[in-house]
């Protein structure tokens, strides 16, 4: 049986999931995901006509809290684990290409 997923499908998913997978990983993942997707396809045997989906098993209701100002953790604590910072900012590589600026 052909794999339900092709390598190009897997490359597309990796892009969506922001994972820069190597060619070897793509090949392995294609095999493994195909096996898993082949298995989960058995859900097609279940008649779900008219069934309401469950996102949360216990009924959840909206919870309001008082609209009051409270202390936050402050920028030093918030930035303490940052891989790179500049004063009170998280520092990241450039977001826009030079051409698009």
């Amino acid at each position: 049986m052909a794999n339900p997923l092709s390598e190009s499908d897997v490359r597309h998913i990796a892009t969506l999931g922001r994972l820069q997978l190597s060619n070897d990983e793509i090949a392995m993942m294609t095999e493994e995901l195909s096996a898993i997707v082949g298995y989960v396809d058995q859900l097609n045997e279940v008649d779900v006509e008219g069934v309401v989906p469950t996102a949360h098993a216990v009924d959840v209701q909206n919870v309001f809290r008082d609209d009051v100002v409270r202390d936050s953790i402050g920028s030093d604590k918030a930035l303490a684990n940052a891989p790179e910072r500049d004063k009170t900012f998280f520092k990241v590589p450039k977001v826009l290409d030079q051409d698009t600026v």
Partner: peptide, 19 residues
Amino acid sequence: GVHYGHRSKNVGDIVEMYS
């Protein structure tokens, strides 16, 4: 790789940095 945790050293733009 922005707010905490591992950040790759081999990065060009931000999307590459994430991935």
